[in-house]
Amino acid sequence: MLANKMTGSWPVAPTAFNDDGTLDLDGMGRVLDCIVDTGADGVCILANFSEQFLIDDAERETLTRFCMKHLGGRIPAIVTISHYATEVAVKRAQLAKDLGARAVMMMAPYHGALMRGSAQQTYEQLAQVGEVGIPIMIQDAPLSGVELPVDLLVRMAREIEMVQHFKIECVGAATKLRALIAAGGDAIVSPLDGEEGITQLADLDAGATGTMCSAMIPEWIAKVVLAHSKGDRDAAVETYTKILPAVNHENRQCGFRAAKAAMVEGRVIRSDFCRHPVAPLPPETREELLGLLRPLDPISMRWGL
């Protein structure tokens, strides 16, 4: 299979709920349409910023099928399939492939704070998912609590054909990206960063080809990537400096609730409901966020007006 490099912005789609906590599929469609209209290079569904840990299995399948059909190939989609059980991850990968996903994203196998896959178990899970025949993005995220050293990532990239893309979100992401690219060479097809772009500039300097951000300001994230890719680092720094207060507030104060707040403001979705035990965004924090976003005039805050 020809490997395709992922560049630019790949926002994570927030999951739309009604005020009573049920899925809002009409709102989900509007979320996807809004993301397409930002000019995003692709979209990721059912990720951590989609509240995947608050969605049951039946809802997950409903969302996967709905999102893939609604997108209709307008932009490529990555489907998150992380699960501690390898058989479950394989089934999720097969469904994503059957529905036309560009790739699947997965963290190392873990469950809670203490059940973590070893290096060998992680390798084995990735290898079995790879047999499905859909490209894999490894998400190196602190949430899993599983250490993924560079030599293990490079080994999987070289020995498992479908392991092609990497979302590096660990502490010191730029250092790890630089080491990963140097050690893995052409086997590292797409080195991306995450964490809402909070370390984006350093990560691009280290060789990241794009950013998997939230759906809050993906058009601005893409501007940073594009300027940097053209060798205009000064323009990248200027844009990054402009958006950093909002990105920092999102990363440190709001989490996945930020994109929802912006989309309610822009009438993309009707509700910014988050399922318990996640607390609603405090009104003061929400207003601080919107105040930082308004000068940027993001598409998410005016799409449905």
Results as ranks from 00 to 15, higher is better:
Leu305Ala: 11
Asp19Thr: 14
Cys44Asn: 04
Cys213Gln: 01
Met68Ile: 03
Gln128His: 01
Gln139Ile: 03
Ile168Gly: 00
Ala262Thr: 01
Cys170Val: 12
Asp37Leu: 02
Arg302Ser: 14
Asp57Gly: 13
Ala101Met: 08
Phe53Glu: 09
Ile136Ser: 02
Leu244Val: 07
Ile221Tyr: 02
Asp20Glu: 12
Thr22Ile: 06
Cys274Val: 15
Ala173Ile: 01
Pro277Asn: 03
Pro76Trp: 01
Val163Lys: 05
Leu293Tyr: 11
Leu289Glu: 07
Ile138Gln: 12
Met6Ser: 00
Ala206Tyr: 04
Glu61Phe: 00
Gly8Asp: 02
Met301Pro: 02
Pro277Glu: 10
Glu265Trp: 03
Glu265Leu: 06
Arg275Ser: 13
Glu159Gln: 14
Thr86Met: 10
Val146Arg: 09
Gly100Thr: 09
Ser9Thr: 10
Ile168Thr: 02
Asp26Gln: 14
His228Asn: 12
Leu204Trp: 09
Glu250His: 13
Phe273Ala: 08
Glu238Cys: 10
Lys242Cys: 13
Leu126Tyr: 13
Asp193Ser: 14
Glu161Phe: 02
Thr241Arg: 15
Val247Tyr: 06
Met6Leu: 15
Gly194Thr: 07
Gln94Asp: 12
Asp151Gln: 11
Ser82His: 04
Ala96Gly: 05
Cys274Trp: 10
Asn248Met: 14
Ile78Val: 14
Val154Arg: 02
Pro142Gln: 06
Thr62Asn: 00
Val31Ser: 03
Val104Ala: 03
Leu54Pro: 00
Leu177Tyr: 06
Leu296Ile: 09
Cys274Ser: 15
Ala246Tyr: 04
Leu192Arg: 04
Met301Lys: 05
Gly291Val: 14
Asp37His: 08
Asp272Gly: 13
Leu244Phe: 15
Cys254Gln: 11
Ile75Pro: 00
